[in-house]
Design a protein around this nucleic acid. Structure first.
Length: 269
DNA sequence: ACCCAGGAAATTC
DNA sequence: GAATTTCATGGG
């Protein structure tokens, strides 16, 4: 068991079920079970302590990074709340969201799957992908398959996922990530536009999927994914504003706005 | 039967 | 170039 004390600005339901990760399952007791970096754990929040069952001290840094515990979200939220009153409202509503540091290749694949799709079905496809091709872990769960493994697969091999037209995109992503034609780690530190262009060399990766990969897999918090919800929100809630107007942490602002909008669909009726 | 879903590619105008 | 259609699948 691994414990992090004095945790603030974290709500597990908001963070793990807000559409940035598709592998966490809420349990009846409020805890969440999931797999990341080939580790299966159960996480819960109790009296300001984040408790991770199934992990030990050797993985303290890994889980601290995963939940982005070293970033001061309270200060970021205070700063970006000055930008616009509606952003302040959204940030207050979604104050428990943190940007996870997921595996870059997993983020890439899951957001390829996400296109023209709904979150419930995305989760099912991702689960079948892991069960079919991921490493089986000691507790019976499955890791996310790596690019090397998936690069050997064909579109027909992916038929059991029932991912539709996205299967060919997954194959292309696996091949280019495995061969080094697309360098995911390069995207961690490259100029933002260069990183985006690198990812868009993959078939089925446009600006939105690239931005989600950068934000959720490579912690590029300046990335501002524009999906259907965000386009509606920008039009109705922030007329005249552009992503760059939200500052260096615009990706975090984006998540606040996305979650706030999704929980208040009546704003766009 | 029809419409939509954390889009992007292909086609048409 | 900008606007429209197509692409699989499943749920409402």
């Amino acid at each position: 068991m691994l414990i992090f004390n004095d945790i603030t600005d974290l709500d597990l339901a908001q963070t793990l079920d807000c559409g940035q990760s598709f592998r966490w399952v809420e349990q009846p007791d409020g805890s969440f079970t999931g797999v990341a970096y080939k580790r299966s754990v159960s996480v819960r929040l109790n009296n300001g302590s984040l408790i991770i069952d199934g992990a030990d001290e050797s993985d303290r840094q890994l889980w601290s990074d995963y939940f982005d515990l070293s970033l001061d979200y309270g200060k970021i939220r205070a700063d970006i709340s000055k930008i616009h009153p509606v952003l302040s409202e959204a940030a207050g509503y979604a104050a428990g969201i943190r940007i996870l540091r997921q595996e870059p290749y997993e983020a890439l694949c899951t957001f390829i799957i996400s296109q023209n799709n709904n979150i419930k079905r995305i989760k099912g496809i991702v689960q079948r992908l892991c069960e079919s091709f991921g490493e089986r872990l000691p507790d019976g769960s499955f890791a996310f398959p790596d690019a090397q493994t998936m690069s050997a697969l064909t579109v027909d091999d992916l038929a059991p996922l029932r991912s539709g037209f996205r299967a060919k995109y997954l194959v292309d992503a696996a091949q280019k990530a495995a061969s080094g034609e697309v360098r995911l780690e390069y995207c961690r530190t490259a100029d933002y536009n260069d990183a985006r262009a690198e990812l868009m060399k993959i078939k089925g990766v446009g600006t939105k999927v690239a931005d989600c990969t950068l934000l959720f897999g490579l912690h590029r918090v300046e990335a501002f994914p524009l999906d259907v919800w965000m386009k509606r929100a920008m039009e109705k809630l922030f007329p005249g504003m552009e992503p760059k107007d939200f500052g260096e942490y615009s990706g975090i602002a984006q998540q606040y706005i996305f979650h706030y909008s999704r929980m208040h669909p009546e704003l766009f009726g």
